[in-house]
């Protein structure tokens, strides 16, 4: 069992007797430090999506399905194609990647985990740390070097996230793609 707060995009959870792919999670803070987690879920059996909200400490069954280490190969709209070590190809619908899609880039070499349900590739989890080039960010406004002042940035793949104020366009940065959190300059 995991708490809602621990669930990440790409996980598959069991709710109301059905498996659901977690496409997106958004954690916010309610009063008195309590976390609220909003999730976009896709029902693996019915192919339907829903938005739902949980208390951060709500417990849910994170089901372990068959997984394979794969690398990203190419995009054939609307499918992302991944390949395993034996050159087998697996198509994953773009919607099932959730926010991870914004970190997918041509030629990326990171090993991703493709999850299968009854033989069908249903989701992809990226590594917990990836390195991406900052394609655009405003110049530093305050000259802050502590890393505490943040500003928005866009990285290769199209994701936008908050980065330290000292980061410049063209630099490589480490990101946790599960949360979109900037870690450090690479």
């Amino acid at each position: 069992m995991k708490t809602a707060h621990e669930i990440r995009p790409g996980n598959v959870i069991m709710l109301n007797g059905s498996p659901w792919v977690v496409q997106k999670t958004e954690t916010t803070r309610s009063g008195r430090n309590a976390a609220i987690v909003k999730m976009k879920l896709k029902n693996v059996l019915l192919d339907s999506t829903t938005e739902t909200t949980f208390k951060g400490d709500d417990k849910m069954e994170d089901i372990i399905l068959e997984r394979l280490d794969c690398t990203y190969s190419y995009f054939a709209d609307p499918m992302y194609v991944f390949m395993d070590a034996e050159y087998n190809q697996y198509d994953v619908e773009s919607g099932n990647l959730g926010d991870a899609a914004a970190y997918i880039t041509d030629g990326m070499e990171e090993i991703c985990q493709v999850t299968f349900y009854e033989g069908k590739a249903i989701s992809v989890e990226l590594p917990t740390t990836i390195v991406r080039e900052v394609t655009y960010t405003e110049p530093s406004a305050r000259g802050d070097t502590s890393g505490k002042v943040m500003k928005p940035a866009t990285v290769a793949g199209g994701a936008t996230l908050s980065v330290a104020d000292f980061i410049k366009t063209g630099e490589m940065i480490e990101i946790d793609p599960r949360t979109g959190e900037f870690k450090k300059r690479a």
């Binding site: 709710l15 958004e26 609220i36 909003k38 829903t50 739902t52 709500d58 849910m60």
Partner: peptide, 14 residues
């Protein structure tokens, strides 16, 4: 702002 996006949403219980 996020309150508008969460208000009224269901929460599926086990």
């Amino acid at each position: 702002d996020w309150v508008e996006g969460c208000h009224g949403l269901p929460s599926m219980q086990a």
